[in-house]
Simulated assay, not measured.
Amino acid sequence: MNPIQEYFYRIEEPDRSTLLFLRRKILESDTENITETLSFGLPFFKYKKKMLCYFYFSKKHQKHYVSFYHGDKLDHPLLLQEGRKKFKILLIDMNEDLPLQLILEFIDEVKKHIK
């Protein structure tokens, strides 16, 4: 198993399946320009080799989240900044439907800010 796969397989179900589904949808949203790497032990998605977003787990909120680079330029009530300068996070509630369309819209918006 490669390190990215290991990251996901350390997460228990049903969270793992949800994050793997989201991972696939992010990668499929732009197969030519979005790539995945492991940075700081976390799966990072890059757009044209520049930071786009990453997954992590919030100990404070006890939920997984997607953190968006250039999040400071995104304005949406579900996004939390919590003292971050360039990033905003979207908490993923595993008991609710995944806001896939919203996440993909955020990714498209962040892509506009990457030079």
Rank of each mutant, 00 (worst) to 15 (best):
Lys25Arg: 14
Met94Gln: 11
Arg23Ala: 03
Phe44Leu: 02
Asp97Val: 08
Asn95Ser: 15
Tyr47Met: 06
Gly71Tyr: 04
Lys85Tyr: 06
Leu27Trp: 03
Phe55Asp: 02
Ile4His: 07
Val66Leu: 13
Lys73Phe: 13
Arg24Asn: 14
Leu91His: 09
Tyr65Thr: 05
Glu96Tyr: 11
Lys46Phe: 04
Arg84Cys: 07
Ile34Trp: 03
Asp75Arg: 10
Glu109Pro: 07
Cys53Val: 00
Leu102Arg: 06
Leu104Phe: 08
His61Lys: 12
Gln5Ile: 08
Thr37Lys: 15
Leu42Phe: 11
Tyr47Pro: 03
Asp72Lys: 09
Phe40Trp: 15
Met1Gly: 14
His113Glu: 13
Leu42His: 05
Leu79Asp: 03
Phe21Glu: 12
Val110Trp: 02
Leu90Ala: 00
Glu28Cys: 08
Lys73Trp: 08
Ser58Phe: 01
Gln62Gly: 06
Asp93Phe: 03
Lys73Cys: 04
Gly71Ile: 04
Pro77Trp: 00
Phe87Glu: 13
Arg23Trp: 06
Thr18Asp: 09
Arg24Thr: 13
Phe21Met: 12
Lys59Trp: 01
Lys49Asn: 15
Thr31Trp: 09
Leu22Asp: 01
Asn33Tyr: 12
Ile34Thr: 01
Lys60Tyr: 10
Ile114Asn: 03
Glu82Thr: 14
Lys50Val: 02
Thr31Arg: 15
Lys115Gln: 13
Pro14Gln: 04
Lys59Val: 07
Asn95Tyr: 12
Asn33Phe: 09
Gln81Val: 07
Asp72Cys: 10
Tyr9Met: 11
